[in-house]
Design a protein around this nucleic acid. Structure first.
Lengths: 239, 239
DNA sequence: ACAGTCCGTAAACGCTGTTCACAACATCGC
DNA sequence: GCGATGTTGTGAACAGCGTTTACGGACTGT
């Protein structure tokens, strides 16, 4: 299969360089350092050249967000590779710990992806949300492990419709990935538990990343582990 | 008592105007819109004039943060004023709901105060954290209500020292506010419960503000209320 | 009245995102 | 191979940014 023209390849190379440089600037100096001129300078081109690749600075930033999500997803997959597939508890723990570890090591990227106020109501943030990706991965493990779920009447009524869509979406995603989950294994209540799982995890990690403890905490890891132990116990995954 | 010179009063007026304008820009168009020139333009002065009041744009932003915290604290106090002081459950619910309501109504301000990666390790973020302020208020209610606390051996060992400092700090704050809490009412375990309370609340609210649900949620309030019900039940404050 | 302080300005510097017209090069189809 | 088309990058320009500096005028205290 042809690799495209030499020009296509050169374009892809340049695009990759642009993204790599943008990321480096984000990581080292935060979002305000991701300027078109800084990127261009590093690549030995001028800023207007970047408009050949992206419609705007904001467009580039959006792609950066997607890159961060994809890389994080890849990292979590790697974390999972080291754990026996049948050990559901260990897998869930690995994913959650991986997420936290990554977040603490990448505060600028975390902020970019996970803590930006929505500004375009027409664009459905949930469609690209990492929570969705996370639950695509962790949800599979959670569902396979068999969860302790609350009675379905405990699910807020206004949530049922949303959960139904999410659940079938999740089943489709899993089916597309060659994962077969029995219908009974992923009911509404299970989807609800997954949602709450994510809320708890995200909240704990965000608070740590943004230093929002009400007092100086020497070592936050035990707090996280305690929360995690609670979580897995509540969903019935603990020993 | 003298009000100071006319110049002092003019300075205070101008400062107030600067802050008001900066806030308005933040709210309407986000942090990148808070430029010295935009503020100056609105006040009919030039940008360099602002350096008579603030050392830098960043200095102004820091003051803006403090303003937001103070205003939020005032809002929560108002929420509390409508609730009988003896109804501890209602007071806690009011404060938590007030916090969420405010956060959802003020996403840019929330982001500025609650979701900025720390960048100055020498400056102790926890000293100015709103979590601290929040627990100064809510902690009083929680302690007065008498909490169900875990056994002290459940407190992570590495946290004990931090909690001890926090607890005595909290007692001092309350004493200074004329609130007397018996020593036994605010032990280490209680302080730990308060910490976990804040983590849960913050996490839920942040996730909502940043639209980090894994799927579109039509109405997030029931999720919040469900979490809140869990929280107050866990601390022994429910009916 | 005078000296010191404060406030605001204009000019300047170096930086930003973006647009536009042009030139050079690469690719494609005949 | 050649001409037409598309792509890539440039330089110039525009309007905007944060910040510094020196100056002049107003205010304050003695």
């Amino acid at each position: 299969m042809t690799q495209g023209t030499r020009r296509d390849r050169a374009r892809a190379d340049t695009d990759r360089d642009i993204r790599r440089q943008a990321r480096a600037l984000l990581i080292s100096d935060g979002p305000q350092a991701v300027t078109l001129r800084a990127i261009a300078r590093e690549l030995g081109i001028t800023a207007p050249a970047l408009y050949r690749y992206y419609a705007s600075r904001e467009d580039l930033i959006e792609h950066l967000r997607a890159d961060v999500c994809a890389d994080l997803g890849g990292d979590l997959d790697q974390d999972l590779a080291d754990v026996a597939e049948s050990d559901h508890l260990a897998q869930v723990l690995a994913v959650c710990r991986g997420f936290r570890r990554w977040a603490l090591a990448h505060p600028q990227e975390f902020t970019l992806v996970f803590a930006t106020p929505p500004h375009d109501p027409r664009k459905d943030p949930a469609r690209d949300s990492f929570g969705r990706i996370f639950l695509g991965v962790a949800g599979r493990i959670l569902a396979a492990g068999g969860l302790v779920t609350p009675p379905e009447q405990d699910i807020p009524a206004t949530l049922v419709k949303d959960l139904t869509v999410f659940r079938s979406d999740l089943l489709d995603t899993m089916a597309a990935a060659g994962v077969s989950i029995a219908d009974s294994r992923l009911g509404l209540a299970t989807a609800y538990v997954m949602l709450r799982f994510w809320v708890r995890l995200y909240g704990q990690v965000a608070l740590e990343v943004f230093g929002q403890f009400p007092f100086p905490v020497t070592d936050a890891e035990p707090i996280f582990e305690s929360m995690l132990a609670d979580l897995v116990r509540e969903v019935g995954l603990s020993d």
